[in-house]
Write a protein that binds this DNA or RNA. Structure first.
Lengths: 354, 354
DNA sequence: TAGTCCGTCTTGAACGATCAAATCCCGAAA
DNA sequence: TTTCGGGATTTGATCGTTCAAGACGGACTA
């Protein structure tokens, strides 16, 4: 393996100084056309790539984005959601010239300690947080330290003065879409299999179902007997589905907050149309219709928001997310404004379960 | 946020020189006890942590381990295996003072290019490769460049002169265990639902099933009619299971090469004991017995092997894997010898499907 | 003709750590 | 008393890059 090619090697080869090479790479506009060409040739000929470590020493920028990898979920089959998000994140980050650094943490306190540690040692430029919850201490801490970050997931119940950039998928729109799909197929008794109250994500998805039913003319008083709350898991879903099927006026369709619960509902083997949420691999495997989150795009949006605050918005076009499909939230000034929010629309994947 | 604490700040605070502080951290044995204590206090008081970038410039070591994150598997429900492995890797690496850097690549060629790119820019100290296949160009390239790496998965069909460290789980032992479990339960007609020939992993798992049946006195000529090959997926598994159940002498038990196929077999709703492979979340969800790979330990072993070749084996005890549970392969000299191989034993998770 | 400006390029310093070599200090040996 | 040895500590140089300031030269102006 040839010895490391440094900027001096390139400079010598192109008959210019270090700084000129550096300028060609970082501020090409200050270098004369002809020189620029010569330097670029030298770079290519020698296979030069700037050492990130040296660059970081001078600029203080590591081009690293830190993400916590969650332990495989004990409670369901939804682990692959994070997996796909992480894959998208790695890909989008790479396109923008960043890399993803992983860390783990068992709880919020451990995570704060890890923040501090990482910042002291590897100095990541930003963090991406997932599964934020009510009163999450992590966002507060990062805001205080003025460390750039984005969350994948809206801030449920965070005081509005603590605003920060986030990306999320409109869960309510997803369940509403699923509900409408069942309505269109002729169903009138459409139940909801959800989590216990208190989960921002879960309550949001329930709201979408309720909204769709109400605007279809279903009497709001009817909703209570169609609604069901249980912890996540296939056995729990099976039990809850049985209860809804054995009621006086049984349901004929079921919108579920997760594929785990939906899988349980399918296992009743009763005559029932079921739609799950997250389009996990198991949904594909068993032919379960499901609401699919645009995870690759969510990841791309996260990167785009980060790049915006890191590079001051002057990033190259390659790293941009498809903004057409994104609904910008609050009426921010497009540039230089307060943090931006991106709410993406999910889609329904119909399969034989409906 | 306080300004960055440098080694000079610590030196001043403890009334020693830079180098002494550095020595306390890297070669404490050359520093006098009393000085060591004073420096350690200063480090704690100021919250000093060595900048990785500066350290890397001098030492050439990045304390980064690069891993490719695989796209969510299109073909099954086994994605979570990689997920859990990655989690374990991150955790074990952190314990040993390393961090995991992610990258993606669509094919082997793209991956080689990414190797080169990463090595030029971020200079990871090592790579962890997963899903290696016949004649994998990546291992050859890394060996040529003398870049440390480990693979999770044995080298199937690699010339013996290209030896390198690997960690794997003994799939044959897993299917043999599953088969014995069914034999013990009184089954005599135990089929195998496997992948088409040509996959190292798949052939190995089939061999374990065959071995267990043969040593239980089943006539080897009987195996052919118990064996079934199909591509991965629940529908494929369902079809194949039906075929085995509708044969002249139907099977009563089924050992499967994956949870996807096993899930399909369960969907036949016939009287049949089924055991899957990988203990994915869906197995837990539907009560499918499955062979479980010790992924956290596999990850720990990967890190241990890497640390061995990176730090010359002189790593601290914290990062060690539990070597008791590991069977060392070939008779290497423990230290300074050729690459080490670790073959781990899976375990059977019995559930209501048996 | 001299002065000013501007575009282009070069030089010196700095980022924060470690390596290699020099220095200091103290006790033992000559 | 001087010399030597060696443990403990310090000093100077270096890794590869970018920042800040300086140098150069031609054009334009006064």
């Amino acid at each position: 393996m040839a010895d490391k090619v440094t900027i001096d090697d390139v400079a010598r080869y192109a008959n210019v100084s270090r700084q000129t090479v550096s300028n060609v790479l970082n501020s090409p506009e200050v270098v004369r056309e002809e020189t620029r060409r010569r330097v670029r040739e030298a770079v290519k000929a020698l296979g030069y790539r700037a050492s990130q470590a040296a660059r970081q020493m001078r600029t203080g920028r590591s081009r690293l984005i830190a993400v916590r990898i969650e332990p495989a979920q004990e409670d369901g089959i939804n682990g692959s959601v994070f997996d796909r998000f992480l894959h998208g994140l790695t890909e989008s980050a790479a396109r923008a010239g960043y890399r993803v650094l992983l860390y783990t943490a068992d709880d919020h306190d451990a995570e704060l300690a890890t923040f501090d540690d990482l910042l002291g040692v590897y100095e990541p430029d930003a963090f991406v947080l997932t599964s934020t919850d009510y009163g999450d201490p992590r966002t507060t801490w990062l805001l205080e330290q003025r460390i750039p970050f984005v969350t994948f997931g809206r801030p449920w119940g965070v005081p509005p003065d603590q605003d920060y950039p986030w990306v999320d998928v409109d869960g309510a729109a997803g369940t509403a879409m699923a509900t409408r799909h069942l309505l269109d197929a002729g169903h009138r008794r459409i139940g909801f299999l959800g989590w216990p109250e208190g989960s921002g994500v879960g309550d949001d998805r329930r709201a979408g179902w309720a909204r769709a039913l109400t605007s279809a003319g279903i009497d709001p008083s009817e909703l209570a007997e169609l609604d069901s709350r249980t912890t996540d898991g296939a056995p729990e879903g099976e039990a809850a589905a049985h209860a809804l099927l054995d009621a006086d006026r049984p349901v004929t369709g079921l919108v579920c907050v997760s594929d785990s619960l939906a899988l349980g509902a399918l296992q009743t083997r009763r005559r029932l149309s079921v739609i799950g949420f997250d389009d996990t691999p198991v949904a594909r495997a068993v032919g379960l219709a499901s609401v699919s989150q645009p995870l690759a795009e969510a990841a791309a949006s996260c990167v785009a928001l980060l790049i915006h605050s890191l590079d001051g918005g002057s990033n190259d076009a390659r790293g941009r997310t498809n903004a057409d499909a994104a609904e910008r939230g609050s009426a921010d000034t497009p540039s230089e404004g307060p943090p931006t929010h991106v709410l993406l629309q999910p889609s329904l994947v119909p399969r034989k379960s409906v």
